[in-house]
C-alpha cells in the first residue's frame, strides 16, 4: 500500500464515525417519536353522520350565505311517525338536505327541502304552518331519546315556524290578513275606539282589551304578537313534555324560493339554560341529533310529522 492509499483510508475512517453517530441519532429520535405516536390517541375524526365544520363566523341568519357552499351537505332520510297517536303514515319523497357549521360560540344548521306550496299562516282554524326542527342530545343517546328526549337525555329542540317568520318579516299577521272584509262594532271595554268597523292592529290594543286574549295575557309564546326570533328553543324529556326554555336566544331565518325551503336554525354552543337541561356543545365531541319536518298543507302539527332517525353529529 502506497503512502497515498494509507492516507485515504485514514480519512475515510475519520468521516464514517460522525456519519454513524448522526445516523444513530436520527434513528433514535425517530424511534422515540414512533413510540410516542403509539402512546398518543390518533387525531382522526370519528365516524359521524354529520360533521359541523369549523368556520370563522357562523352565518346564523343567512340561508344563502356563500359560506354554506363550502361545507359538505348530508342527505337525511325522513320517516313516518307511527309511534305516538296521532300519527303520520306518509313520508316526503325526497330526503332532507342538512349542513352544519360552528365557530366555537354558535352552531348553525341549514335545512333544505322541496315544498311546492309554502304554508305561512296559522290564522284560520284549518291553517297549519310549515316548520322544521333540530333535536340535540348527548351521545350515545338511547333509542327512546328520539321521542323528544328522556329524563336522563333531555332533548334541546330548535323549532323554526314559517308563520313566526312571516310575523317577523312582514309584521304580525293579524286577523285582517285572513278576513280582509272584517267589520266589528266594539271590543269591550273600548267601544269608542273602533272607527268605521275596522279594528285596531292587535299590537295596539289597550291593556284592558287584552283581558279577552288569554293566551297573550298568560305569556304563551305562540300568542305573543311581537315575535323576536322565528326559532323557538325548547326542552323535552319525553312525548308531550315539550316546554319553551326561559332564555329565548336561538336564532335563524327561513326563505322559500322556487319550490325550496332553506332554513337556518342556530343556537349558542354554551347553553344559556343548562340548569333547565339545555345542551352544552363542545368542539371535537360527538352528539346525537335528529331532524323533523312538518308540512302545513298536509295538516301536520305536533306529532303529525316526519322525523329522521337519531343521527350522530361531530363538532370539529
Amino acid at each position: 500500500m502506497s503512502e497515498k492509499e494509507l492516507q485515504k483510508k485514514k480519512e475515510r475512517k475519520k468521516l464514517s464515525l460522525p456519519i454513524f453517530i448522526a445516523l444513530a441519532a436520527v434513528a433514535s429520535i425517530s424511534l422515540t417519536f414512533f413510540i410516542k405516536r403509539l402512546q398518543e390517541k390518533p387525531k382522526v375524526k370519528p365516524e359521524a353522520d354529520i360533521i359541523a365544520a369549523k368556520v370563522e363566523k357562523v352565518p346564523f341568519n343567512d340561508p344563502f350565505s356563500p359560506l354554506w357552499e363550502k361545507v359538505p351537505s348530508y342527505s337525511i332520510p325522513l320517516t313516518q311517525q307511527a309511534t305516538v297517536k296521532p300519527m303520520k303514515f306518509t313520508t316526503p319523497k325526497d330526503p332532507l338536505k342538512v349542513k352544519a357549521v360552528h365557530d366555537g360560540e354558535w352552531i348553525a344548521f341549514l335545512l333544505e327541502w322541496n315544498d311546492t306550496s309554502p304554508d305561512i299562516h296559522t290564522i284560520k282554524t284549518k291553517e297549519f304552518r310549515d316548520a322544521c326542527a333540530v333535536l340535540l342530545t348527548n351521545y350515545p343517546a338511547p333509542p327512546e331519546a328520539w321521542f323528544m328526549g328522556t329524563k336522563d337525555y333531555p332533548a334541546t329542540i330548535l323549532h323554526w315556524k314559517a308563520d313566526w317568520q312571516m310575523d317577523i318579516d312582514e309584521g304580525f299577521q293579524d286577523l285582517e290578513k285572513a278576513f280582509p272584509n272584517l267589520s266589528i262594532d266594539m271590543y269591550p271595554p273600548m267601544k269608542e275606539a273602533i272607527v268605521r268597523g275596522k279594528p285596531p292592529p292587535t299590537k295596539d290594543l289597550p291593556e284592558e282589551a287584552r283581558a279577552w286574549m288569554v293566551g297573550w295575557k298568560s305569556g304563551n309564546p305562540l300568542s305573543l304578537p311581537d315575535k323576536k326570533s322565528p326559532v323557538e328553543k325548547l326542552i323535552g324529556i319525553g312525548p308531550g313534555s315539550l316546554t319553551p326554555l326561559p332564555t329565548q336566544d336561538a336564532s335563524g331565518k327561513g326563505i322559500w324560493k322556487v319550490g325550496v325551503w332553506r332554513v337556518v336554525l342556530s343556537k349558542k354552543m354554551k347553553g344559556s339554560d343548562s340548569k333547565e337541561g339545555e345542551i352544552n356543545l363542545l368542539s371535537e365531541k360527538m352528539y346525537s341529533v335528529a331532524f323533523t319536518l312538518w308540512s302545513g298543507h298536509e295538516g301536520d302539527r305536533g306529532s303529525r310529522k316526519n322525523p329522521s332517525m337519531l343521527k350522530t353529529l361531530y363538532i370539529e
Partner: peptide
C-alpha cells in the same frame, strides 16, 4: 274553538 289572534284553542 281556535282563536285567530292568540292562535291557540279556547
Amino acid at each position: 274553538f281556535y282563536n285567530h289572534v292568540t292562535r291557540i284553542s279556547e
